[in-house]
Amino acid sequence: MNAIELSHIHKSFGSFAIQDLNLTVPAGTICGLVGENGAGKSTTIRILMSALRPDSGTASVLGADVSSPAFRDVKEDIGVVLDEAYYPETLTAVQVGKVMAGTYRRWNPKQYEDFLQRFDLPEKKQFKDFSRGMKMKLAIAVAMSHEAKLLILDEATSGLDPIVRDEVLELFSDFTREEDHSILISSHILSDLEKLCDYIAFLHQGRLLFCDEKDQLLEKYGIFAGTLEQVESLRPEAVAGREASGYGGVRALVLRDEIPAGLTLERTSIEDIILFMVKGAK
């Protein structure tokens, strides 16, 4: 079963539109959603959670059509962390726990308490006095305390210091040890996604440029460093993007299968692939 299925989604806001978005996240996997600010990541998440109705196309999460009344029950199985949307500022962590106990049928107060201690979150301090990192930690604690099967995380690791970030990534990784547990995570910290994800989906200006297995992407592409003449001698289909590298040299993101054998390529990273593709698109 797929945890998430988006099929031919269109959503227009006038100057910006999500166009023909097809995205599948198999159950038991972690998918990183990458894109510039305004690329459509948050819009995609809102469509997935039935908070926004698409103009056309279908969306299903954990096997349920998000536009069906039954999806409200499915939300019990989904933990969500949103960037810039929090609990009202006068609430404390304990009060948030009590409200969530009345919200989720499978709320686990012991687990929530453990998370508060693990993240060193004060129980009686008002939310308005929390740092951004603390707010994110509280949101993660809530998302992981009601026995969710799917986590949808929008910039959930931003604002966390590197040590806590590492701990949180470990938590997310442990979460998917259960074969029916899945994660969709959007982040600008591509190194986190490279560490964590099985799949990478790249949204650019409302269009999905690719959604592939991370390891396949890293095998598919390589970096060629050479002269401008050398890069221009390659078949145009082989070059996904290029940039000047100083001293007249050029670095190019190339498809390994499309270039002549014997050409030396550097190993690429997800960050390189994304950056070259954005530059290529521009």
């Binding site: 809102r46 959670m49 039935s50 908070a51 409200r72 029950d73 939300k75 019990e76 989904i78 969500v80 949103l82 810039e84 949307a85 929090y86 609990y87 009202p88 500022e89 006068t90 919200t103 989720y104 939310f127 949808i152």
Partner: peptide
């Protein structure tokens, strides 16, 4: 007053993700 606090923290967006109708 409660709604003003909700707006300031964008609670409505978060609530839309939860099992509230």
């Amino acid at each position: 007053t409660a709604l003003a606090y909700d707006e300031r923290s964008h609670w409505g967006q978060l609530a839309a993700m939860m099992p509230y109708s």
